[in-house]
Amino acid sequence: MKGIIFTEFMEMVEDRFSEDVAEEILELADLPSGGSYTSLGTYSHAEVLNLVTCLSKVSGVRVEDLVLAFGEYLFGRFADVHADFFENVPGSLDFMMKVEDYIHIEVQKLYPEATPPKLSCDRINENEMMLHYASHRPFAPLAKGLIQGCAAWFNETIEVSQEDLPGTGPGTEARFHLVKVA
């Protein structure tokens, strides 16, 4: 998994909790990398799962809620770093439709070894869309967080109902029903 996810996660922990909490979970997680993350590197996604679990233990917040919050946070950071992706995109649903065929392709150009998830969109109407997520990583909750982060960035309210699908394990595949209500 790309290093930026890890550095951003640690940033979030330091920002939302504290530097002490960050130190604590790193200590607790006992990671192979020792937590010396750089956005240029690539690390096992097990480490981020491990960190989230530790964060839950330390903070008492549910893992799902943490992942969701991280998703929202991550989207905001992406938007800051890659503002050019948002040019001429009118709304969140339109942006999500671009992710698979545009953004993931750009990612692959920069990092040929990257393996982003498969996203396919089925636009039902102007305000309604089905989004299918499939990955070898169990990050459907992260995807949901990203969706919400996206809606927040566009100042929209999107109702997200998630239907989990078996995939290759829990959290690896899900269908999201998105309805823009405002």
Partner: peptide, 13 residues
């Protein structure tokens, strides 16, 4: 840790 991360980054770079 940060030093290690920097070195890793430098190495990668």
């Amino acid at each position: 840790r940060e030093k290690k991360a920097r070195k890793a980054a430098e190495r990668i770079a």
